[in-house]
Structure formats: C-alpha cells, structure tokens
Simulated scan of single mutants.
Amino acid sequence: MKFKRKLDIVVISDVHLGTYGCQAKALLTYLNSIEPKHLILNGDIIDIWQFNKNYFPKSHLKIIKKLLSLATKGTKITYITGNHDDMLRKFSDVTFGNISVVDKLLLKIDGKKMWFFHGDVFDASIQHTKWLAKLGGYGYDTLIVINSVVNWFLNKIGKERFSLSKRIKQSVKGAIKHISNFEKTATDLAIENQYDVVVCGHIHQPKKELVETSKGKTLYLNSGDWVENLTALEYQFKRWKLYTFDSDKLAPFIVDEDLVQMSEKDLIAAITIFGNNVKKAN
C-alpha cells in the first residue's frame, strides 16, 4: 500500500481538460498521491472554450472520475469558475454532496482571512473582447502542441524539456507587464480589504510571495497550471507550500485500480451521472 500525504487544503487551477496541452496523466499521478480534506479547483479545469467532441481522451475522463471519487470518500471540493469554464457560472452557489460551485471563496483558517478566485476578472481582453481572448486561446493551444513535439525530440536525445510559451512570456515586455499588473492588482485589493492571503490562478505563473505596502501586507499565492508548470498549492501545519510535480522525489503513484479496470464507457457513464446531479441541484 502506497503512502498518501494528508493535506488540509490543495489548490489546483488551469488544468484545461479537453485540450492537447493538458497534462492529465501527471495530474492523476499527483491526485493519487494525496488525501486532501478540502480540494479547491480554482478555474479553467475543463476548457469549454476549446471543447471538441472529437478530442477528450480517456486520461482526461479519468481526472473527472478521480474528482468524483475523492468527493465520495469525504473530500470537500469547491469548484471556482474561471474564464475557460465560464458556462458553469450559471450553476454558481449550487451544492450537491461534497461538491460546490462558486465564483469566489472566502475562508478564515487559523485566524487568517483568505480570498480565493480565478483572476480573469482583472483581464480586460476577456471582459470586453471575449472573441479575441478565445482566438488567443487557440493560438496558445497550437503552441503547446508544437512544444510537445519539440520536447519529445529533446527527450529522445537526452536533453531537458523546455516551455516555448514560458520562454515567450519571459521575453515579451507586454506579457511581463500583464503578469506584473495582475499580481499588483490582486495584492492591492487584498490589502485594501484586509485579506491575509490571496489565492489566484489564470496567468499560469506559480508564485508564493509576501507583499507589503504602506497600507498593509498580504501573502500572494498563484497555483500555476497543469499545462506548462504542473504545480499546485498545499496547506498543512498552518503553512502554504508551492508544489511542483517535476521536483517531486516521491515514488510515482499509479492510477487507482478501479480506474485501471474502468472502460471508457463506464467513465462516460460516471460523468453523465455527475451532470444529471448538477441539473437536479439547480
């Protein structure tokens, strides 16, 4: 029997199920290595913007089945909606069993006020020109596909993989400015509203930083993503940790036995039941 780490809170975001860039197998390995009391899905878990009925592989279906399994076994799951899954906002404040759907989450833990939200509310391109943001999403997904081919070749010749999109973000002044503005806006608002911790996703930039201004201070956390960085946030023993899958030295966890034996038909049936429960709750 493999040891699973027990955690109070785990935050993951920007999984983008249904796209070629999604690292579903790595995420499933991670989810099978932990036992969280509260799992916060901080937006863009299912990429409804780029959903294609011809592409939703079994590994992606297994993520949904795993989440349902965690909820059944007692994990509280809070699904915070993002921009790529904004259609789920029609179900905001709906709860069914251990799963709830919200647009933001406010918690007080160990005496500290914590504010969780995806972060797309700060993005003007999404708020005012959604079609342009969607077009950019398709371009990003194409870049990820190209990157996967490049990394396959690098792996074959024994070289380390690298991220084309991350390299672009780090070299384009506009992208750097956007990330900086996002982080400043989030922390300024958190300090203004006296939140001790602010937790975001959206920009695919994992980070943990204590920000202090003349008006106060807050701990800024970004869960990153499961496309490029493969990161999550973990809370245990009154401390936040930024988890990186590529740096995890634990022995790999195979998928649960029930998932190994499950056919694609069974997986789709499980998801259908999940959808029907949502409709009944609404």
Rank of each mutant, 00 (worst) to 15 (best):
M1L: 13
K4W: 00
K4Y: 05
K6W: 03
K6A: 14
D8E: 15
I9T: 07
V10R: 00
V11R: 04
V11H: 00
I12A: 00
S13L: 07
H16M: 05
H16G: 01
C22H: 05
Q23L: 09
A26F: 05
L27H: 05
L31C: 01
N32A: 04
N32W: 01
E35L: 09
P36K: 05
P36C: 05
L39I: 06
L41C: 08
I46Y: 01
D47P: 02
W49H: 01
P57E: 06
S59P: 00
H60K: 07
K62H: 01
K65R: 12
S69W: 00
S69V: 03
S69M: 02
S69E: 08
L70S: 00
A71G: 08
A71N: 08
A71W: 06
T72S: 14
T72E: 15
G74W: 06
T75I: 05
T81H: 02
N83T: 08
N83I: 04
D86N: 14
L88V: 09
K90Y: 15
D93K: 14
D93R: 13
V101C: 06
D103V: 08
L106W: 10
G111L: 10
G111D: 11
K112S: 13
K113A: 11
K113M: 10
F117S: 08
H118R: 09
G119T: 07
V121K: 10
F122V: 00
F122N: 04
F122Q: 04
S125T: 13
I126Q: 01
Q127L: 15
Q127W: 06
H128F: 13
T129H: 12
T129E: 10
K134I: 15
L135T: 09
Y138E: 05
I144A: 13
V145I: 15
S148E: 12
V150A: 07
N155C: 07
I157P: 05
E160S: 14
R161K: 12
R167D: 03
R167L: 10
K169W: 03
K169I: 02
Q170S: 14
I176C: 04
I179R: 03
S180Y: 11
N181P: 02
E183V: 04
E183A: 05
T185Y: 10
D188W: 06
Y195Q: 01
Y195L: 04
Y195P: 04
D196K: 08
V197D: 08
H204Y: 03
P206L: 02
K207D: 07
K208Q: 12
E209S: 12
E209I: 10
L210E: 12
L210H: 12
T218G: 06
L219S: 08
N222E: 01
S223Q: 00
G224C: 03
D225F: 07
V227F: 00
E228M: 09
L230K: 06
Y235E: 00
F237D: 15
W240A: 07
K241M: 12
L242Q: 09
T244H: 11
F245A: 06
D248P: 02
D248Y: 07
A251R: 12
V255K: 00
D258H: 12
V260W: 03
Q261L: 13
S263Q: 07
E264S: 11
L267V: 02
I268E: 01
A269H: 11
A270K: 07
I273F: 09
I273V: 15
N276V: 14
N277I: 06
N277T: 11
